[in-house]
Design a protein around this nucleic acid. Structure first.
Length: 307
DNA sequence: AGTGTATCCTGCAGGC
DNA sequence: TGCCTGCAGGATACAC
């Protein structure tokens, strides 16, 4: 199996580099841009559901009936969710979970991947009119897809909070979304009904960039800190999109150098290592069952007062 | 209502 | 070498 996988560079790259990337907003946005160039305007000829559990509250035959024969229109994103607009007023929402992703195999590589056996995590396969395949892969099986009329898409996503890269996003909207809760700010950032798209990795990165300790209570944050946090959020997510984009184009052109934001993380996964900014040792704590990483000097427990 | 916790799943790392 | 255990995480169901 392993030898066979090595015979296919593209598949190896998929199974290695991308497998471990948690899909948060930047990864979903990268997939959106990548797929928009490849599958928009193509008809879904056939749908193969390989894992019933990857459909959200829908039987395979119903899902197929709603999707087959439809043309893929625009591809949108809300938080970490990808939204495929289909013809005849239909739509599909992909929730990527921890390991979900959408891969497009043009005709030639579809044959290659069948040979080298990386299909074990394929959950739903969309066979397209152009001979290619759009594959919903999901190693851990937490991802879900659901098909529905477009007018129901809004309802399905209405629980999501403010979009960090949206036009309405300001430091005031961030404060408004978070300030009422008594949860630590890091835990609140993961709550998709307050701010959507930020996951465990970028939450730590954002807080490090703005110098806010993950255990701080939102109600104690000062205006200056909300401003910095909103700015940090936009910067970190945009930089990650740029990095993710480079690694996707790398995937399309296997000769290119590897990219990806995982190489630029400043605190996440760096417990015991030195902070790049001040040299202090990065600390890991548990919050709400999740790991949080921070620098005790750059992110003090109390705000540094300037009065 | 708001908050905290267990659960799903799979691959991998570490211990023995 | 190989087995076992614990861990990682997003969303959700459920308990308090």
């Amino acid at each position: 199996m392993r030898e066979a996988a090595q015979s296919c560079r593209i598949c190896l790259r998929i199974s290695g580099e991308f497998q471990r990337k948690m899909p948060e907003l930047p990864e979903a946005e990268t997939m959106r841009r990548y797929l928009s160039r490849l599958v928009v305007g193509t008809v879904i000829r056939q749908v193969e559901v390989l894992r019933q559990g990857s459909l959200k509250g829908q039987r395979a035959d119903e899902f197929r009936r709603l999707v087959q024969g439809k043309t893929i229109g625009s591809i949108g994103r809300r938080g970490k969710a990808l939204i495929l607009e289909l013809s005849e007023g239909m739509g599909m929402i992909f929730r990527l979970g921890m390991s979900g992703r959408l891969i497009y195999h043009p005709h030639a590589t579809a044959v290659q991947s069948a040979e080298c056996g990386v299909q074990s995590h394929d959950r739903v396969i969309f066979c397209l009119e152009d001979g290619g395949r759009l594959v919903f892969q999901d190693l851990r099986g937490f991802g879900k897809v659901r098909a529905m009329p477009q007018q129901e898409v809004g309802d399905e996503l209405k629980g999501l909070g403010v979009e960090p890269l949206g036009r309405q996003f300001t430091w005031e909207s961030l404060e408004e979304a978070l300030r009422r809760t008594k949860m630590p700010v890091k835990v609140a950032l993961l709550d998709q009904s307050r701010v959507c798209g930020v996951g465990n990795i970028y939450a730590s990165e954002i807080l490090h960039r703005c110098g806010v300790h993950p255990g701080r209570r939102p109600q104690d944050l000062r205006q200056e800190e909300w401003r910095k946090m909103a700015l940090a959020m936009k910067q970190v997510l945009r930089e990650a999109i740029r990095a993710g984009g480079s690694s996707i184009s790398d995937y399309l052109k296997p000769d290119g150098s590897p990219g990806g934001y995982q190489n630029r993380l400043r605190v996440y996964g760096r417990e015991g290592k030195q902070c790049y900014r001040c040299g202090s040792t990065i600390v890991r704590i548990k919050q709400g069952g999740r790991s949080s990483f921070y620098c005790p000097r750059c992110q003090p427990v109390r705000a540094v007062t300037s009065d």
